[in-house]
Simulated scan of single mutants.
Amino acid sequence: MADLWSAPRRLTRGGQPRYSDLAIELCLTLRLVFGLPLRQAQGFVRSIARLTGASILAPCEA
């Protein structure tokens, strides 16, 4: 799961993305489904990751 969560390394100039498009879309989809504000969606994803034992960070948590 962690390999799908992090973005592939950029080969061009510029900053490196931290999260994959899949991770961001998942968080925003959960936000819409449950009608959560962005901060609550962040906490929701963080708690799911903690419960499953996944070593991932929620977007905007870093």
Rank of each mutant, 00 (worst) to 15 (best):
A2K: 07
A41N: 03
G53S: 04
I24V: 15
L22F: 06
F34W: 11
L11I: 01
M1T: 06
L4E: 12
S55T: 08
F34M: 09
T12H: 05
G35F: 01
C27A: 11
F44S: 09
L32I: 01
L38Y: 09
A2G: 10
A2C: 02
R18T: 15
W5Y: 01
A54H: 07
G53N: 02
A58N: 05
E25Q: 13
E61L: 06
R9T: 13
L57T: 02
E25R: 15
V33L: 14
L28T: 08
G53E: 00
D21W: 00
R13A: 08
V33F: 10
L38A: 11
L38E: 10
P8R: 11
I48K: 05
T52S: 14
G14N: 07
C27G: 09
R50Q: 15
R18S: 07
P8A: 02
R9G: 05
M1N: 07
S47N: 12
L26G: 07
T12E: 12
C60H: 09
A49Y: 03
G15Y: 02
L28D: 09
G14L: 07
L28S: 08
L28R: 14
Y19W: 15
Y19K: 04
T29R: 05
A23Q: 05
R39N: 11
L30T: 05
E25D: 12
A58S: 15
A54Y: 07
F44Q: 02
R13K: 10
C27W: 03
